[in-house]
Structures are given as C-alpha cells and as structure tokens.
C-alpha cells in the first residue's frame, strides 16, 4: 500500500538511504546522557519528601502502625465522606479500607461509574516507582489500579515504599517497557502517568491556583519502619 506522506518524506530527504527494513531495528543513534547516581536510601527519601513539599504537596514518613491514626486525622481535617482506593496487597495488609469504614467513610469501588467516582473526596493509590529528583509519583494502570482514582477525587493520597525509589527516568522507562507482553516486546502497558505535585494553573494573571481539573491536594506517605532496602 502506498503512503503519500512517507513517499514525500523520502523524496525530500533524498533517496541514498537504504529502505526501511523492520527486522533490522532502528539502527544507530546518538549517545544518551548517563543516569543520576543516588547517595543513600535515606538521602533519596529525604529529597523525595522535600520535593513533594516544594510542590505544595503534603509528604510524611510513616510506619505501618501509625497508618490508622494518620488516616483518622486526614479524614477529620479534610471532611472526607466518600473515598475510593486501589485493590492492592499493601492496602489489604495495612487495613486501609476497614479503617476508613470504621471512620464512617463511604467506600466506592474503583471500578464504579465515572459519575459516581467524581463525587469522591479521597482517592488512594500506590505508585509503581518514585523519583526523588523531581518528587514524582509514577502510577501504572490495571483493573485493580484504575487511573481515575488519582484524577477524579479532590484529594489524592499515595502510599509508597522505599523499594519504589528509582534514581532516574532511565530505570523507570527500562522497567516499564520490559513489562509489556513478551511476544511483542518492546511493547508497553497501555498507560503510565507521572504525577508531580497537585493539579495547578497560572492561567489567570499568573496567579498559581491548585486543583484546576485534577486533585487540589496531594498527600504522600512513605512507609519506612521495619523495612530494609538497598540499591544494588
């Protein structure tokens, strides 16, 4: 089948180059800048928390036994009545859903209709990776981890662990591509999103305003106690 756009590109660039051969791969390309090197896990955690705070997010270090108290405080302070959360083993283990119910918060399924999800005050997710340099959460997507949970509620809480730390974009991207279906590799999952601070705009007279379309508040809890982690 002929493609006039491709043909015209070839005419313009000149015909000396060999024709495209899908099995030959993409050929050589310029070198890439090397990755950032972390000092220690502790310094990475501190930098991550620091960056989230600089972006007007709330960032805290928590241990597993302090989660229910922290949830209680969050619910009371922000008037949370409806919440939705990802279905993950970590949340199961931390008893998040039960704690919320005991606080009289309505739990909406993360697979509920979008109109219903839009009325949630709180959405709780994990992250696949976190990036300390920029204070970024990297979220994947699946039926258990729907993307709307970090988008529709007015407050987004991400609960993360130090194991999710990656030094740089290089590692995140390499792992993400590697997770695609093996037969079609490189073939990535259908969706990935980086979240760096709460939704913001400066479109009216350059006044910074949070919570335009996405969540107004971003809270990040990093679970640290009783965990030993090391970079290899």
């Amino acid at each position: 089948m002929t493609n006039p756009v491709i043909e015209n590109i070839r005419r313009s660039l000149g015909g000396q180059r060999p024709p495209y051969n899908p099995r030959r791969g993409l050929g050589p390309r310029p070198a890439i800048y090397e990755s950032r090197r972390p000092e220690s896990v502790d310094s990475e955690i501190e930098q991550f928390l620091d960056e989230v705070r600089k972006l007007s997010g709330v960032a805290e270090k928590l241990s597993a036994d302090s989660v229910s108290d922290a949830l209680k405080a969050l619910v009371a302070k922000n008037g949370i009545r409806k919440a939705t959360l990802w279905h993950t083993p970590l949340f199961e283990q931390l008893g998040i859903e039960n704690t919320l119910r005991s606080l009289a918060v309505d739990i909406i399924s993360p697979n509920a209709d979008k109109h219903e999800m839009a009325h949630c005050d709180l959405g709780i997710t994990e992250a696949e990776y976190i990036l300390p340099e920029t204070g970024t959460l990297v979220l994947a997507s699946s039926a258990e981890k729907p993307r709307a949970v970090s988008l529709l509620p007015r407050l987004h809480l991400a609960i993360v662990r130090p194991e999710m730390l990656r030094p740089d974009l290089h590692q995140v991207f390499a792992e993400h591509i590697g997770r695609g279906e093996a037969s079609l590799r490189p073939y990535t999952p259908d969706y990935l999103v980086f979240i760096t601070g709460p939704s913001r705009t400066a479109d009216i007279e350059l006044t910074v305003t949070l919570g335009v379309h996405g969540p107004k508040n971003l809270h990040v809890w990093i679970m640290v106690k009783n965990l030993t982690v090391a970079f290899d």
């Binding site: 990535t188 259908d190 969706y191 999103v193 980086f194 979240i195 760096t196 913001r200």
Partner: peptide, 14 residues
C-alpha cells in the same frame, strides 16, 4: 523540573 502530569498512552485501554 517536570510538569504536573506526564502521561504515556499506548493504544486503547486493555
């Protein structure tokens, strides 16, 4: 350092 949201979309939802 990075904009708030960077999304990576590969085809429709699976």
């Amino acid at each position: 350092k990075l904009s708030t949201y960077t999304q990576f979309i590969t085809g429709p939802r699976r």
